[in-house]
């Protein structure tokens, strides 16, 4: 039977970054697991409800060893959401997915025996996005060539493109996006949740623009803005646009 899609409301896809706890096991695993048990004994439920990533960088192990380690962690109620730094050949389909592109954050403090139940408060804090600290310079890159169709430009800070962004190309920035040319493809600013990010372009022909997960396709963009120099910003949960001149 043919399935008929009647929903006119599109599915909204959002990006969001979370702070995950990274475990770096050391060989031999038996000793390391023992130390882990000691830590867990001091604070029951430390690993509960936490996103945990396993970092296998510089570890020379094979797949059975990894599977055994995952089972051991599973027995301790440590649920691994992803594996970082592993050779692709090491990972099986039944294992957590490989994760790349992680950026270091401040170390977690291991709980000591005096404050046993801090887990709920911490998990709430871990879900909050990192706050901008005054005085910290926001990293930015400048691209002096056109972004071609099929190319994807991603950067955690601001992106400036001196040239055009082609149809079928995308620019994804953690901060704002400045395009000194025609924006024909997609631009997503504030992709890590920064709702103060903006998008600027010399000429708007975009397929899609997004800030902080809120997006507009070319059909939703006011037709009179086409071909104009335009900026986009977010107010509450509405994505607004106006000409620059």
């Amino acid at each position: 039977m043919t399935e008929v899609l009647t929903a006119t409301q599109p599915v909204r896809l959002k990006g969001r970054s979370f702070l995950a706890l990274v475990l770096s096991p050391e060989l031999p695993f038996a000793d390391w697991l023992k130390r882990l048990d000691d830590l867990a004994a001091r604070s029951a439920g430390f690993f509960l409800q936490r996103p945990i990533v396993l970092d296998l960088e510089n570890l020379d192990i094979d797949r059975p060893q990894l599977r055994d380690l995952l089972d051991q962690l599973g027995d301790r109620n440590v649920r691994i959401m992803g594996i970082e730094g592993a050779r692709p050949s090491l990972l099986g389909a039944d294992m957590p997915p490989a994760m790349t592109g992680g950026r270091p954050a401040s170390d977690f403090e291991a709980p000591d025996a005096d404050t046993p139940e801090t887990a709920p408060a911490r998990s709430a804090a871990s879900a909050r996005r990192p706050e901008w600290k005054p005085g910290r310079t926001v990293p930015s890159i400048i691209v002096t060539e056109p972004v071609r169709s099929g190319q994807s430009l991603m950067f955690e800070g601001d992106i400036t493109v001196v040239g055009s962004v082609a149809s079928g190309a995308e620019v994804v920035a953690g901060g704002s996006i400045h395009i000194y040319g025609t924006l024909r493809g997609r631009a997503a600013a504030g992709s890590m949740g920064d709702e103060s990010a903006r998008i600027f372009c010399r000429r708007l022909e975009a397929e899609l623009v997004a800030i902080g997960g809120y997006y507009k396709t070319s059909e939703d963009i006011e037709p009179e803005l086409r071909g104009q120099d335009v900026q986009f910003w977010l107010e509450g949960d509405s994505l607004l646009a106006s000409t620059l001149t």
Binding site: R148, S149, G150, Q151, A166, S167, G168, A169
Partner: peptide, 8 residues
């Protein structure tokens, strides 16, 4: 558009 992709 396809040419643009190829140039990339």
């Amino acid at each position: 558009r396809d040419s643009d992709r190829i140039i990339g």
